[in-house]
């Protein structure tokens, strides 16, 4: 599986490298803005970094799905499917490579964000008010109608459920692509159909999760349960995808 993951990474490293370079540029812009006292550059840096933080995960997920589609529908499919690997292994490697990349990217941008904000308030000389400022800013956010409490536990659970959500989103997209490539192969409007299947699956997963978690009183338990349900559904979708690949995929 590791070998498969190695090649999944190699298929996508270029995009990741570009994002890293752009991040470096945005960060440089931020630093220039901060220490060069240029508000324009500072603002621009902050905005770019924010978009990169959110966008990078989106881009990596998208690229992973597009790569899967390519790996099943173009001639390069021979590379994967001639090898003595099971569908479970092939798909699993993709899920893992993408998942780990997203985790690392999330951690990276989170750390970068913390660093940048610290620098910002250190420069402004008022570290104490940093936390009050952030808290008041974020007091407006709620989850499931309940106010967000910013302690370590809540933040980590929030991160957990967010990432689980992303992983579910990607695996749902995988399933949609596998369904269209293996069962609906050769038919026109392949892309549109996969997209609708994706929406339907995603809608069903979201509905199921909400149905279970809305009855839970505690925010912490709700987030944990939500995250876990995401992972379970993702697991089921992964399994079904691999099964479909095994039985119905012709490349």
């Amino acid at each position: 599986m590791l070998k498969l993951m190695k090649y999944e990474f190699r298929k996508t490293w270029y995009t990741k490298a570009i994002m890293l370079v752009v991040t470096a540029i945005a960060q440089a812009l931020y630093m220039i803005g901060l220490y060069g006292e240029r508000d324009g550059a500072l603002l621009a840096g902050m905005i770019f970094l924010f978009f990169l933080a959110v966008g990078s995960i989106l881009i990596m997920g998208l690229e992973s799905v597009v790569t899967l589609h390519r790996d099943m529908n173009t001639k390069q499919s021979h590379m994967l499917f001639m090898t003595p690997n099971t569908s479970y292994g092939i798909l699993g490697a993709k899920v893992l490579e993408c998942g780990i990349s997203i985790l690392l990217a999330g951690a990276f941008y989170f750390a970068l964000g913390v660093l940048d904000f610290t620098l910002l308030f250190a420069k402004m000389g008022e570290l104490n008010t940093l936390w009050e400022y952030v808290q008041s800013f974020l007091a407006d956010f709620t989850i499931n109608g309940r106010p967000l409490v910013f302690d370590v536990q809540t933040m980590s659970l929030l991160t957990f459920s967010q990432l689980s959500g992303w992983i579910l989103l990607i695996v749902t997209a995988y399933l949609a692509v596998v369904i269209s490539s293996s069962l609906l192969n050769g038919k026109k409007l392949n892309g549109a159909v996969s997209f609708f299947i994706f929406l339907a699956l995603e809608g069903a997963a979201a509905w199921l999760t909400r149905a279970v978690t809305s009855r839970i009183a505690s925010t912490a338990v709700a987030m944990t349960t939500g995250g876990l349900i995401y992972l379970v559904i993702a697991g089921v979708m992964y399994y079904v995808s691999a099964l479909l690949m095994d039985k119905y995929l012709s490349v």
């Binding site: 190695k6 090649y7 298929k11 001639k75 590379m79 001639m82 090898t83 003595p84």
Partner: peptide, 30 residues
Amino acid sequence: RRHVAYMSTEPYFYNWMTARDVGKYYQDFF
């Protein structure tokens, strides 16, 4: 698939590879 070697008519290697990479890929999986 461990024992069957198939060569198709069309090119199928990943186009970011070199001939050496192709060899390493085969070495990794076969």
